[in-house]
Amino acid sequence: MERNNQRTILLGMIKSLKDNKSWCGETHIQKAMYSLKTITNTPIDYDFILYKHGAFSYDLRDELTEMRADGFLSIEINPSPYGPSLAISESGQRLYDKYRENVSQYDPNIDFIATNLGAKGVTELERISTALYVCKKDNIFDIEECASRINELKRHVTIDLARSAASDAYKMLQEYEKHSC
């Protein structure tokens, strides 16, 4: 996908997450973009692997860093003890306005993901994105099997929590199918 179009999708996701009361830290954005790619098949070029807090993309991390360097995004400091949030700057808004039309067909996908994930905290997002990753990569669609795989890879996630994450992930996949029909 053309660079500025992809950046516009990313900015659109950040806006939509904020509208849905997301904390909008880097981890929240990572998981939302992974879900956008995996659940809605939006053709973004960021490659994801299973790493920090679940699905993670080095490309996306570099993109967010570069957009900070370019002044399109800024860091919002939160009160102790919490991590920072990312916010769209004035020039980020201008970039979004300039390219928005090119990618407006993906707005419903962004809305679907932001509506479903916006209110969730990092730990829940970590588990859901890990469940999605496991189910897509290993082709596992059985909740018990998925939960045991999550626990094997992420020992700090208990089987009970992994089970509930797998169930949430499958529900989202089914809902998107219904939603897009």
């Binding site: 904390w23 830290g25 981890t27 929240h28 920090k52 807090h53 003890p81 919490y82 991590g83 209110a119 969730k120 905290g121 990092v122 730990t123 829940e124 970590e126 992420k154 700090h156 996630v157």
Partner: peptide, 16 residues
């Protein structure tokens, strides 16, 4: 353990 990355729910236990 990871630092609290937001004020929603419990804190991640992921080691870092």
């Amino acid at each position: 353990q990871a630092p609290p990355l937001d004020s929603k729910g419990e804190q991640s236990r992921e080691p870092t």
